[in-house]
Design a protein around this nucleic acid. Structure first.
Length: 470
RNA sequence: GGCGGCGUAGCCAAGUGGUAAGGCAGAGGUCUGCAAAACCUCCAUUCAUCGGUUCAAAUCCGAUCGCCGCCUCCA
């Protein structure tokens, strides 16, 4: 690829766009806050994970390898509470929802990431981190729990820009039921309480606080300093702020070079969130037969740092848009396979223009909305030329190469084909063709209706008969 | 109260100083046995409002209105 590597990302820490330069010029290290598996993930959660998916795919398109960690939080207050309510183990709860999460990932065509560590498999690393913080004097103990002393870490607040003096002691900060010396402090290790799960450590039995796992696991897989850390914007404070504090205090090095945060998915004007009760799970859409590619497209159709409102109207419109892309992809592919067709115009410069626009849009802080805009311009222009039989197999092949490249990020143009059904469909299509040749249109239309009931749309084109699934 | 974001057509949305991309919906037309797909034409003299700067503003500055987020578990 001749395109110069010059991706820019909006970095939360600086509040501005910065040219991306990874520590290792070949391999980008990424840590993404993953799901807490206490429930089925909703599509607001998946807005974030689709954004992360676009990030890693874009980096790969630009020639980088990625070393990407996305954790599974499988121990936390909510999981424990649900397990107790249902009289199950936390493992029962977490594995149920973890499994559903990965099914949803497939539904939305999320690429596998390199590492999916579970928090409970990394307790040792977390204990080690707390130990080092204790040694360096960043902690205190109270009622068996270990707290991080925010006062000691002078850079505290640099990510979120929060003014600590504004956080009033005693106001709304005791909700985690653990007492602290200072409202701003956060818990590293929660001392064992009655029938909750616990682990042994040098500083007593207990379980890790929420922030600890990301610091421990990212260090395990990516080292003290890594390139990109992602999450949704509600994690900026306190979660990521606390990660920085504990990691930098313990390691004495910069924790993360680029912080990328995704905006929310809204229902009406409010964020989609479990506590507001306005969620739609990915599983529900999946069970309702909503096309996952349309959902993926919908989530990609707006820049990741802008609020996005969910509606079924938007999903419907995404279905149509995705179908248009898929139809175009198939048309180009068929033409590329047809060595009889010669080029009657030169499309190379135009194609290069669209290619450049595509790369430039993604390089501009993953502007998928802009990228799609120029892609649809290509669709219209190439369709128009194909209608006039101006494009032959050579140029179709060049266009197909670009589409494949674009789809290595989008991943919506090639629908899953149900091969088991194909022979039956082909037979019916052939019968209909015979009927049409015999000008028996009643029979032809009957077969067309029959296919439609099977979810198959027939298209009689100049290049021949095509069919596709609804 | 502190910090941050948003307001562009019927809906979604790109555009951060040079005269409004794109998608969906809608209207008319071409093609077709009919459809479907595709194409063509039309669809914002205007970017929440009001001022200001400038040769030039959706874009910069100021004010106003409306909406949202974080500051507490959260994607």
């Amino acid at each position: 690829m001749t395109f110069q590597k010059s991706i820019r990302f909006y970095d939360t820490k600086t509040g501005s766009q910065r040219r991306f330069e990874p520590i290792n010029p070949e391999v980008v290290s990424i840590y993404s806050c993953g799901p807490t598996v206490y429930n089925f993930a909703h599509i607001g959660n998946f807005r974030n994970f689709v954004f992360v998916d676009v990030l890693r795919r874009t980096l790969k398109l630009f020639g980088y390898d990625v070393r990407h960690v996305r954790n599974v939080t499988d121990v936390d207050d909510k999981i424990i509470r649900i397990a107790q309510e249902n009289n199950e183990s936390i493992k029962d709860v977490s594995s149920r929802y973890e499994e559903a999460f990965f099914e949803d990932c497939k539904y939305l065509r999320l690429e596998d990431v390199e590492y999916n560590p579970r928090a409970t498999d990394h307790i040792d690393g977390m204990i080690d981190l707390v130990k080092r913080l204790i040694e360096k004097g960043y902690t205190y103990e109270k009622d068996g729990s270990i707290y991080f002393k925010v006062d000691k870490f002078t850079d505290y607040g640099k990510l979120s820009g929060i003014d600590l003096s504004a956080v009033r002691t005693g106001a709304r900060v005791d909700s985690d039921e653990y007492s602290k010396e200072d409202a701003r402090d956060f818990v590293l290790w929660k001392g064992r309480r009655n029938d909750e799960p616990y682990w042994d450590s040098d500083f007593g039995q207990g379980r890790p606080g929420w922030h600890l796992e990301c610091s421990a696991m990212s260090r395990h897989y990516l080292g003290d300093t890594f390139d990109i850390h992602t999450g949704a914007e509600d994690l900026v404070f306190p979660h990521h702020e606390n990660e920085i504090a504990q990691s930098e205090a313990a390691n004495g090095r910069e924790y993360v070079r680029y912080w990328l945060h995704c905006a929310f998915l809204n229902m009406k004007d409010q964020k989609m969130s479990k506590s507001l009760g306005n969620i739609i799970t990915a599983k529900k859409l999946r069970d309702d037969g909503v096309n996952g590619l349309a959902v993926r497209y919908f989530l990609l159709s707006v820049h990741y740092r802008k609020p996005l409102a969910f509606s079924y109207e938007s999903i419907d419109s995404a279905v149509t848009a995705v179908t248009r892309l898929q139809t175009f992809f198939t048309r180009i592919k068929d033409l590329a396979d047809n060595r009889e067709a010669d080029d009657r115009t030169d499309f190379e410069d135009k194609l290069n223009k669209y290619k450049n626009e595509w790369f430039e849009a993604l390089a501009d802080d993953l502007n998928t909305a802009k990228a799609l805009g120029s892609l649809f311009e290509l669709v219209r222009e190439a369709n128009s030329l194909m209608d006039r039989q101006m494009i032959g197999w050579r140029q179709a092949t060049a266009i197909l190469d670009f589409l494949s490249m674009a789809d290595s990020v989008l991943d919506v143009m090639q629908s899953d084909s149900d091969s088991g059904l194909n022979q039956e469909i082909e037979d019916l299509v052939n019968c209909r063709n015979e009927a049409r040749k015999a000008r028996n249109f009643e029979e032809a239309d009957r077969i067309r209706d029959q296919l439609k009931k099977m979810g198959i749309i027939i298209e009689d084109t100049r290049e021949g008969v095509r069919w596709r699934k609804i």
